[in-house]
Simulated assay, not measured.
Amino acid sequence: MDSENFSSDTGIDADCCASETANSALICGLEPDSLVRLVRTAVGLPADALDRLAGVADKLRAVEGLPQVDSTAD
């Protein structure tokens, strides 16, 4: 998922509504519930805030002993 799919654009048009429907379907398909909560919380955040959130997630992965994720795949 990239931040472009979760913009906080206030212009409402058919493409936007279709995109929001697709995003909602994608979010609802996530497991576990904590991941759904994280994604719903992140929706609409500006790109710099999403970058900070990803940085925190990277630090948490390190603390948990999990391998780093390749962030260039975005």
Rank of each mutant, 00 (worst) to 15 (best):
E64I: 12
L38H: 11
T41C: 10
Q68E: 15
A49S: 09
A18N: 08
A62K: 08
T10I: 11
L66Q: 13
C17Q: 12
V56G: 00
E20I: 09
F6T: 03
G55Y: 00
P32L: 00
C28K: 13
N5I: 10
G29F: 01
P67I: 05
T72Y: 07
P67E: 01
L26H: 02
L45H: 06
L53R: 03
C28V: 06
S71M: 08
L35H: 07
C16E: 15
D51C: 00
V43Y: 03
P32W: 01
D58S: 15
D74R: 11
D33I: 04
V43D: 07
A14I: 12
A49R: 06
D51F: 01
G55C: 04
I12F: 12
L60P: 03
N5M: 10
P46V: 09
C17W: 07
N23S: 12
L30R: 01
E20K: 08
E31W: 01
L35F: 06
D13P: 08
A54Y: 10
G29L: 04
D9M: 05
S34R: 03
S7V: 03
D74W: 07
E64M: 14
G44M: 04
A49V: 04
S24G: 09
A62N: 01
D2T: 15
A73C: 07
A57H: 13
S7W: 01
D13T: 08
M1I: 12
D58Q: 14
L45M: 11
L26N: 05
C16Q: 15
N5V: 07
N5A: 14
L50K: 09
S34W: 04
I27H: 02
A57K: 12
N5K: 11
R40A: 07
V63Q: 14
C17A: 08
D2A: 15
A57G: 11
V63F: 15
T10S: 12
D70P: 03
S7M: 02
I12P: 11
V56H: 09
K59P: 00
S3M: 07
V43I: 10
S24F: 12
A42F: 00
M1R: 05
L50G: 01
A47Q: 14
D13I: 07
S8N: 13
G44W: 05
T72F: 06
K59D: 04
C28G: 06
V63C: 10
A54I: 08
A25D: 09
G55D: 08
L50E: 00
A57N: 12
A18I: 02
A49K: 06
R40V: 04
E4Y: 14
D51S: 05
V36Y: 02
D9Y: 06
L66H: 11
A62D: 01
D13V: 10
D15M: 13
A54L: 10
D13S: 13
L45V: 01
E20R: 09
D70L: 08
L30I: 02
T10M: 11
D58C: 14
S7H: 04
V36I: 15
D51P: 00
E4I: 12
A73Q: 06
F6V: 05
P32V: 01
D9R: 08
